[in-house]
Design a protein around this nucleic acid. Structure first.
Length: 207
DNA sequence: GAGGAGATCGTCT
DNA sequence: GACGATCTCCTCT
């Protein structure tokens, strides 16, 4: 994919700015000579030391160390005994902000991503089925084969990695802001960003 | 379609 | 030893 990569500087900003601007960008995985890709349609900002909901709030530990490192790197953690969630580190080194990737619209390698999720796809699969590929943090990690062992600490700003962000020029018409999902601290903070009206955002949908 | 409970294990106390 | 930035399945309607 010839789309330009997102730079280190892109991620060297606060998580709110990065979270909003990351919407519509592509996350690309190289599997051998094949590419898997999705367009980010939902994410959340976590503000480090000042954010009780952030994994970095308690200070630096072996688990969350990536968040304290340079921007543009993957922080992957294992949750509920079953799932991986992927974040990108933001802000300059020592400042532990990050953006949690929550959902993406499948763009490349739909069949392969569906298989990774244990889903059957046919040529005319309805949108309700395509949504199951990557509408949720655990789901999109599964679809792209993201694990802590494979991807934690990975630099997402270079094609030398097998996982990176790119910009194909797409710009969301409208971005909506809501409280974050699944947390017990700072539950009211409007730090979740979604592409308004996009069908691949996580959660219940009927349309 | 809505709501609730269980799964399952790494991480920190 | 408790709990979690989730998902799926099952039941009830």
């Amino acid at each position: 994919m010839a789309a330009p990569l997102l730079s280190r500087e892109f991620f060297a900003r606060d998580a709110i700015t990065v979270g909003r601007e990351l919407l519509g960008k592509l996350l690309i995985r190289r599997e051998g000579r094949k590419l898997l890709a999705g367009r980010i349609v939902e994410d959340e900002a976590y503000l480090g030391a000042v954010d009780p909901a952030s994994h970095a709030y308690i200070g630096r530990t072996p688990r969350n160390a990536v968040l304290f490192g340079p921007p543009g790197h993957a922080y992957v953690y294992f949750i509920y005994g079953n799932y991986y969630c992927a974040n990108v580190s933001c802000m300059p080194e020592r400042e532990a902000e990050g953006v949690l990737l929550r959902a993406m619209e499948p763009v490349l390698g739909l069949q392969a991503m569906a298989e990774a999720r244990g889903l059957e796809l046919t040529g005319e699969s309805p949108i309700s089925r395509l949504r199951l590929i990557s509408s949720g943090p655990g789901r999109m990690s599964d679809a792209l084969g993201i694990t802590r062992a494979r991807d934690n600490t990975k630099d997402l700003t270079t094609r030398k990695s097998d996982l990176w962000f790119a910009d194909d020029g797409y710009r969301p018409e409208r971005i909506a802001t809501t409280p974050r999902i699944g947390i017990k601290q700072a539950v009211e903070e409007p730090l979740r960003f979604v592409i308004a009206g996009n069908l691949f955002v996580s959660g219940k949908r009927t349309a």
